[in-house]
């Protein structure tokens, strides 16, 4: 046997371990230990936790309203403020400590809008990504593993790849928006709709990749070995196939967050997303592109936050991949 099955010895149980030298540790402790040793992953985790906490708790601390517009006189006085750091090179800039990142053209506080927008963007990004990875992995594994399902599932994938996204969204919002809004409130309803739509229109690539990998893995000797000792299909998939397709899934997941955040912003822009007075990072970015020479901060901040989130998730994914891979973990 040239290709040693990574998890088979744990599972086989045929040869009992003679004498444990250390107290037994669970698999997850091992994973965590490996994860901690990955510097990039820890940095990614720290950054990600920081961003999530910032947008989740931030609005409690920074109490400026992201949506309210002050009365007329104040509005004219306070609109189009520059961030406080502009003073470093332009002492005449219109700034105020009350608005450290400045205000927009309707005198709404940029910092508050960024924090509020981040809540939505991160929630949408994570949930939609999770949904699409779940669907993609499920369908990919089923298609790759169960021969009978391969044809139908792959044709289904073709169908979804071919569907034009915009009309699909129009139909879905026509049919489900009122019902969802009635059950979950207008914003909750839109959230579910947006997440579901991004999720069900972005799983196809993951499914194809996972299926391709599973097709190749299925022919490997360790699977044959596992089958020959009577491993149930369920265990075979969960313990032998899945850990080996984790890395393309992680890459899809990372890219998926970016896609979800950007798709959400395009949806909002096209009028299918959240209500107009509901900021998200993508929307803030989109709304400010026309003014990027006048107020560069309005595109830089949301753009940077999207990038940082994606980047941190990417490193997190890298670390997770290494930690979940038994061959690397052993080293």
């Amino acid at each position: 046997m040239t290709d040693k099955a990574p998890a088979a010895p744990l599972n086989a149980g045929a040869l009992p371990d003679p004498m444990p030298t250390r107290p037994p540790r669970s698999q997850w402790q091992d994973v965590w230990r490996q994860f901690r040793s990955h510097k990039g992953a820890m940095a990614g985790l720290a950054l990600f936790v920081f961003i999530v906490l910032g947008v989740a708790i931030g609005p409690w601390i920074w109490s400026a309203s992201p949506t309210d517009i002050p009365p007329v006189v104040d509005m004219i006085k306070n609109r189009d403020m520059r961030p406080i750091y502009t003073l470093l090179w332009d002492s005449g800039a219109k700034t105020s400590w009350a608005h450290p990142l400045g205000t927009d053209n309707l005198a709404r506080d940029n910092l508050a809008r960024l924090m509020f927008g981040g809540r939505v963007s991160i929630a949408v990004g994570l949930t939609a990504m999770a949904l699409s990875i779940l669907l993609g992995t499920l369908i990919g594994v089923m298609a790759g593993y169960v021969k009978k399902l391969d044809g139908p599932l792959m044709r289904l994938t073709d169908l979804f790849l071919a569907l034009p996204l915009l009309p699909l969204i129009l139909v879905a919002s026509l049919m489900f928006r009122e019902a969802l809004a009635a059950t979950f409130g207008p914003e909750g309803g839109v959230f579910i709709l947006v997440v579901a739509l991004i999720g069900i229109t972005s799983w196809m690539q993951t499914a194809r990749i996972v299926r391709g990998d599973v097709l190749a893995l299925k022919e490997r000797e360790f699977i044959l070995a596992a089958q020959s000792i009577g491993t149930s299909p369920r265990n075979l998939i969960l313990r032998h196939l899945l850990p080996n397709v984790v890395s393309p899934i992680m890459v899809s997941a990372t890219l998926g967050i970016a896609i979800a955040i950007i798709t959400e912003s395009s949806l909002s822009f096209l009028g299918f997303g959240f209500p107009p007075d509901f900021p998200t990072w993508g929307r803030l970015l989109n709304d400010s592109v026309d003014r990027m020479t006048l107020y560069p901060e309005r595109v830089i901040w949301p753009g940077m936050l999207i990038s940082l989130t994606v980047l941190s998730v990417n490193y997190l994914g890298d670390g997770l991949r290494d930690a979940l891979d038994p061959r690397i973990r052993g080293r």
Binding site: T67, I69, L106, F269, G271, D277, D287
Partner: peptide
């Protein structure tokens, strides 16, 4: 209203 940046600004102001 229809989706359009100026109309959304107007909506926000008028709502206020």
């Amino acid at each position: 209203t229809s989706t359009n940046a100026v109309r959304q600004d107007f909506q926000a102001l008028i709502k206020q």
